[in-house]
Simulated scan of single mutants.
Amino acid sequence: MQEFQVQKTDLHKTKIVDVDSAPLKDGEVRAKVDLFSFTANNITYGVAGDQIGYWQFFPAHGAEIQGLLPVWGFADITESKHADVPVGERLYGYFPPAEELVLSPVGVRAGQFIDGAEHRSALPQGYNVYRRVNAEPGYNGAFDEARALLFPLHVTSFCLWDCMKDNDWFGAEQVIVVSASSKTSIGLGFALHEDADAPTSIGLTSGRNAGFVKSLGYYDQTATYDDLSSIDTSKPTVIVDMSGNGDVLGALHASLGANMKHCLNVGLAHWEEGAANENIIKERSEFFFAPGHIQKRIGDWGAEGFAEKSNDFLMKSMVASKSWMKVREASGLEGLSEHYQAVCDGKFAPNEGLIVRF
């Protein structure tokens, strides 16, 4: 069995490592990974690996300095010592970038189970749920690639839209989405576009991606990092920052001043540039953690209520993605190696999604 490791202190350094497959214990199953997506979001898991605990989900074999960046994808059960999870089950969920994963199913239901591995017990439960997709009404494997690419990102998009709406848009008349070409931003742009009550949306992006962002038709206005003066700073504004670029964020906060009503910090598309800047208004900024919002809404709506509302949005956004997203396939972990640096450096085309297939 092989796994794709990165160095925790330098995400650009990677290696593929051979690992012996562990024999199953009673109650465990072996899932052979079939495919997974790999985007800038997976790099963010590494950047925030220590603060949020992403390194803990799938500890790398060997040196402590090595880590595994979690990925979202599909796997098939090839061996089972659990009476309620037979060989042949197909799963959607959180996996290591590796050929297989041993799971300890608990809370087994018709449509899902939770990995009860002890080292994952204190981590956010949303990442430990595995969907038994063959039990889903109308499951169609033809959508597996789009689901692996977009569901993990667009559930955050849904939560951001819902959070802002639930807070009456923080009193804002416009929403600036920083790094508007990222797939999570595109999902949020879609949500705002579909909501007739949403404030005006502004997609902020680089000059090279401006044409693509405009072509989506989701944002009311497109602006570039080198032309922030095109943004009307007299309007009360909420910022959703997917970039982590401190200079851009500081410039926006400084120009908006009192009209910067709230800033939701989400991703780190420009993770190497850091978010520290003396102009950032910290008292009106917050780190947005989607699993926390999901737990809040499960408390408000119940698990089934959240699933119904979010899945309705996810299906619509996935169908809409056919108009802009192209899927690029890589073969196994060697294929991931070939594309990894481009994803890590933010050079992967915004209209493309990478799928690693074994």
Rank of each mutant, 00 (worst) to 15 (best):
L204E: 00
F190I: 01
M318S: 07
R208H: 14
D10F: 09
P291M: 14
D84T: 15
V71A: 03
V71N: 01
G88L: 09
P152K: 11
H253C: 04
G299F: 06
V343S: 02
K25D: 15
T237C: 12
K347I: 00
G73F: 04
L153N: 11
V47M: 09
A258E: 02
I281T: 11
Y54P: 05
A258W: 06
D197G: 02
W301M: 11
N351F: 00
E136Y: 13
G203A: 06
V106G: 12
A83S: 15
P59G: 06
G299N: 03
F36Y: 14
G302V: 00
V213G: 04
F151V: 08
A48P: 02
H339N: 06
N209H: 11
K282C: 08
E308T: 02
G53Q: 09
E286K: 03
I202G: 04
F170C: 12
H270I: 00
H270A: 15
T184K: 13
L268A: 14
I65M: 05
S317M: 03
K15D: 05
S321R: 01
V102S: 14
N265W: 06
E64V: 02
N259T: 13
S310K: 00
I355Y: 05
A290Y: 08
V108A: 14
V85P: 04
G107C: 09
V33H: 09
A40Y: 01
A117L: 15
S185R: 05
Y92I: 11
G246K: 13
P23W: 10
T233Y: 12
K316Q: 06
N311P: 03
V133N: 04
L101D: 11
F95D: 07
K214E: 15
